[in-house]
C-alpha cells in the first residue's frame, strides 16, 4: 500500500494501469497543424472572354466520412473577387475571417481604392508562405478568381507551401488530375481562353464537376458556382449536378466480389 500524499485518491496502478495524466497538461509545446482534419476537395476554375468561372462542391469530409454537406467553399471578397478553398475547412474559415477584416480595413476611410483579385492573390500567397515558413501551415489549396489591375480576367492558385502559379484553367486536388485535362481541352492557352463565351466556360466547368462527382469519392453533387466579370459577382451556392448518367455503372466489371 502506498501512503504518499501524491497517491491519495488516485486509482491504483496495479489495478487500473499507469495513470494517464496527459489530459492534465495544458502548458505543453505549442501545437501546429500537421495534417488537415475536416477537408474540402477540388476547386475548379476557368477563364473566359469577360471573366472567370469558378466552382467547388458543398461537402466537407472528415476522413472518408461525408461530415458536413452544406459548406460553402467559394468566398467573396469585396465584391471584386472570389476565393475557392480546398483543404482544411477550419483554416479556410480562419482565412475567411482574415479576408473580411482586410476588406473592412481597405474600405475604411479612403475611397476609390480596392484590392483586385491579383492584389488579393499576392496577399494570400504571402500569408500562406509566412505560415509555412513558421512550420505552422494553413492547410489549403486555393484559387483566386477575378479581374487584374487592367480589368482583364485573373486566375491564380496558391497552396499551403506558398507556391503560386497562374493558368487559363486551374483545378486543385483531384481536379488537377480529372478536371484540368478537360478544361485544357477548351482553353489550351490564354488566347483560346480569351475567345471563350460564358456559356462555353460554364458548360466546361459543370462538366468537370460532373466528372469529379463520378470519380472523386470525397465529392458531392451539390455545389457552388460563381461567375466573376467586371459587372460583379454572380455566386450560386446551391446548385445541383444535372443530367447525370449512371448507365455505365452496371457495365463496370472486375471490382470487389463481382469478378466477371
Amino acid at each position: 500500500m502506498n501512503h504518499l500524499p501524491q497517491a491519495w485518491g488516485r486509482p491504483r496502478d496495479d489495478v487500473y494501469g499507469a495513470y494517464d495524466s496527459s489530459y492534465l497538461q495544458n502548458g505543453g509545446p505549442t501545437q501546429h497543424t500537421q495534417r488537415p482534419i475536416v477537408t474540402g476537395t477540388s476547386v475548379v476554375a476557368l477563364k473566359f472572354k469577360d471573366g472567370v468561372v469558378i466552382a467547388a462542391d458543398n461537402l466537407a469530409s472528415y476522413g472518408s466520412l461525408a461530415r458536413f454537406t452544406d459548406v460553402k467553399r467559394l468566398r467573396k471578397f469585396a465584391e471584386t473577387s472570389v476565393v475557392g478553398f480546398g483543404g482544411d475547412v477550419s483554416d479556410m474559415q480562419y482565412l475567411d475571417r482574415l479576408l473580411n477584416s482586410l476588406d473592412i480595413q481597405e474600405a475604411y476611410g479612403s475611397s476609390g481604392h480596392t484590392l483586385n483579385a491579383q492584389n488579393l492573390h499576392t496577399y494570400l500567397s504571402k500569408v500562406l508562405y509566412k505560415r509555412r515558413s513558421d512550420f505552422n501551415p494553413l492547410w489549403n489549396q486555393l484559387l483566386v478568381a477575378g479581374l487584374d489591375g487592367e480589368s482583364k480576367p485573373f486566375l491564380a492558385a496558391a497552396d499551403l507551401l506558398g507556391t503560386t502559379f497562374s493558368s487559363p484553367s486551374l483545378a486543385t486536388g483531384y481536379g488537377a488530375h480529372l478536371a484540368q485535362p478537360l478544361l485544357r481541352n477548351v482553353a489550351p492557352d490564354e488566347e483560346a481562353a480569351s475567345k471563350l463565351s460564358l456559356e462555353q466556360a460554364l458548360e466546361a466547368v459543370k462538366e468537370s464537376m460532373k466528372v469529379l462527382f463520378y470519380r472523386d469519392a470525397r465529392s458531392m453533387d451539390k455545389y457552388s458556382i460563381a461567375v466573376i466579370t467586371k459587372d460583379g459577382i454572380d455566386l450560386k451556392e446551391n446548385e445541383q449536378l444535372e443530367k447525370q448518367s449512371w448507365a455505365f455503372a452496371d457495365q463496370i466489371r472486375g471490382y470487389g466480389t463481382q469478378v466477371n
Binding site: G109, S110, G112, H113, L115, N119, T122, Y123, K126, G149
Partner: peptide, 15 residues
Amino acid sequence: RLTYGRAIPLSRLVN
C-alpha cells in the same frame, strides 16, 4: 508592392 503587388494609394501614404 511586396504584400499586395500594388502601388500604395497616395492618400494612405500621406496619412
